[in-house]
Nucleic acid binder design. Structure first.
Lengths: 147, 147
DNA sequence: AATCCAAATGGAAATCGTTTTCATACTACT
DNA sequence: AGTAGTATGAAAACGATTTCCATTTGGATT
């Protein structure tokens, strides 16, 4: 008669998301762009003072990445960014250095090459990083006309 | 009759490498693998107590990267690595997560796609990051036989 | 409902690569 | 030699992330 256990059931091994994870996930659903842990924390705290602490945000992000619901993106400034992904998948970006917009690439360039890398080098790929930096169409045009 | 100015000549605009840059460059020539700033510093100091300080190593690396003689590589652990490159060129790696070896890829996968990315998204590429992580042939085999 | 255990949480302190600051040493040109 | 602009070094500052540790919470057991 009791509501089922929100963190999961130990007997069945059912494992649900912790409160922290759910809050972080909810925050990421609001964002349409790459977001840092500190941004997520700030955003959550702003809308609710009892929101998870920064430590919990970091821990939750780790869990969500491990679960394949979120991917972390390294844009080279020493601050990791996060975003939702289709569970278990990943994608890469074109990142505009002017307006910070990130465009998803719908195809992974490396996937095509896994086979040839494997056979050419005997290298077993576990994961890879690919990000492209430059100017998006808008900003590139602005740059042109401003000059 | 005097030797020409070792830092360069202001009139001609000739610009040579500073002592720090030369030392760092020499260190990089010794390495056959990706190296961190702190490693370079430690190595230089070990062989000569009057070697450049850490700050100078960082500054020299920045200069060398700007000059296109060195590239910095982000392997995702928060510590940048550096290596010599064919001046003005770049390359990517297969990085073994077990023995830390890095295998140079002789071809840049992104170069082929610049055109199509440009025309499909209007995105102007300035640079990109691509690193592949996994196990090199040796380590992959070891992993197999150990199990 | 009372209790116990494991997991989750929060805040403060610690880490650690890198950058800044600022005073000093060097170099090139006059 | 004199001066201005660089280069350099050590120490302090920075900032994202992790670690510590004490507390709370949730789930199972009685």
């Amino acid at each position: 008669m009791t509501l089922e256990a929100p963190y999961g059931n130990r007997k069945t091994g059912e494992q649900r998301l912790t409160k922290g994870c759910r809050r972080v996930l909810a925050a990421l659903e609001q964002m349409d762009n790459l977001t840092s842990a500190q941004d997520i924390h700030g955003m959550l705290r702003q809308s609710a003072p009892e929101a998870p602490g920064l430590t919990t945000v970091y821990r939750s992000l780790d869990s969500l990445v491990a679960l394949g619901l979120v991917q972390s993106v390294d844009i080279g400034d020493g601050e990791k960014r996060y975003e939702l992904v289709v569970p278990g998948e990943h994608h890469h970006h074109l990142i505009c250095q002017h307006c910070r917009a990130s465009i998803h690439l719908d195809e992974c360039l490396v996937a095509n090459l896994e086979q040839s890398i494997m056979s050419q080098y005997g290298f077993v790929i576990r994961h890879h990083v690919l990000e492209v930096f430059g100017l998006c169409a808008n900003c590139a045009e602005m740059e042109m006309t401003t000059k």
